[in-house]
């Protein structure tokens, strides 16, 4: 936190509750997160940990009728929670825009890629169609789509998965957003294409000085693109810090568990991969204390009474755990999580 420039994204105590079902579901339960200009933060977590919900909240994409949102979200000084009607749609795409997981589903099948990008540009800027087409073409070149002129006139189904995701990135960047949100942009792609897209995103991010919030469940991807990693569990950020700190010296037992479940090259064949016992808690029925307590080998009575506060365990490195003293071990020796 330099404190000099205003952060591009500033989330304070965000709570998102889905009220559509029989019981309210606490999908996000008090998230604080800020992203500086030109910084990439990866939100890491398993399915249902609330990482995508957090991401969508920044654009207020959840249906208003069935969602209760509390807390504060500011994007480059704009109070997102206070936006209504036209101001909100103006903000979407221009203030912050989003890359979706599956480009085949996120691109409209009945319009050409060019039409969709031009549409998005014209929505936000008062320029001529031919000027917008030039801009779309320019973006197609920047995301390194070969023969961009021709590709502008193709339909999504005529492109390969990697090309579609490039077009999706061009679409998201077309209006020069201040913040780019990426919702597992490589999950639906082949492994080789994944690497290309990650490299492209990283190059574009450096070239344009983009601020980016990157949601993934893949630790390798997070390490590849991010400056900082925030680990989410049951709607809370349980640990946040620089990539180096979180990966080399994780301090929350959940992060420790996650890292120890990765298959390493040197693992003997025939050995079972370590797992975290149990399953994530029901978000409609969260325990009063730490949500991870029931799966945690280090859980103490204090863990089950109240949700632990974030503890500063290093410069810019925080963990929401009361037993960070016990998890402070030299790297490579994870504490006994798999009891």
């Amino acid at each position: 936190m330099t404190g000099v420039a205003e952060p591009v994204l500033d989330i304070r105590n965000l709570r998102v509750t889905f009220t559509g079902g029989a019981k309210p579901v606490n999908a996000v339960d008090g998230v604080d997160l800020s992203i500086e200009r030109g910084e990439v933060v990866a939100l890491l977590g398993e399915s249902g940990s609330g990482k995508s919900v957090t991401l969508r909240s920044i654009l207020r994409l959840h249906p208003a009728k069935r969602t209760r949102m509390e807390g504060a979200i500011h994007v480059a000084g704009t109070n997102v929670m206070a936006l209504e009607g036209g101001a909100l749609t103006d903000f979407r795409g221009k203030g912050a825009s989003m890359i979706f997981q599956e480009p085949m589903l996120a691109l409209d099948p009945v319009y050409t890629l060019g039409e969709q990008i031009i549409e998005a540009i014209l929505r936000h800027e008062n320029i001529s169609t031919s000027e917008a087409r030039r801009r779309a073409l320019d973006w197609f070149e920047r995301v390194r789509i070969p023969s961009p002129e021709r590709r502008l006139d193709t339909y999504p189904h005529e492109m390969s998965g990697g090309m579609r995701q490039r077009a999706m990135i061009a679409l998201a960047l077309a209006c020069n957003p201040k913040l780019l949100l990426a919702d597992e942009p490589t999950t639906a792609l082949d492994a080789t294409v994944q690497v290309q897209i990650l490299l492209l995103l990283r190059d574009l991010q450096r070239e344009l000085g983009l601020s980016m919030l990157f949601v993934t469940h893949d630790i390798g991807v997070a390490v590849e693109v991010a400056d900082r990693i925030a680990v989410m569990y049951a709607g809370r950020i349980v640990e946040i810090g620089s990539v180096r700190d979180v990966i080399r010296s994780p301090r929350h037992p959940y992060t420790l568990g996650l890292l120890s479940t990765r298959p390493h090259g040197g693992r003997l064949s025939g050995n079972r991969l370590p797992t975290i016992p149990g399953s994530p808690p029901d978000l409609a029925n969260l325990p009063p204390g730490c949500a991870f307590a029931m799966r945690c080998a280090l859980a103490a009575d204090a863990c089950r009474i109240a949700a632990p506060e974030a503890v500063e365990v290093g410069p810019g490195h925080q963990a929401r755990c009361v037993r960070t003293a016990e998890t402070a071990r030299p790297a490579g020796a994870p504490a006994g999580v798999s009891a």
């Binding site: 979407r92 795409g93 825009s97 589903l105 409209d108 999706m168 209006c175």
Partner: peptide
Amino acid sequence: RDYVEAAKASGAGALIIIRKQ
């Protein structure tokens, strides 16, 4: 569909979505 949400995410209002998507 995702493309309707994607359209929302790039700033389309209800009228644009009904007319286009």
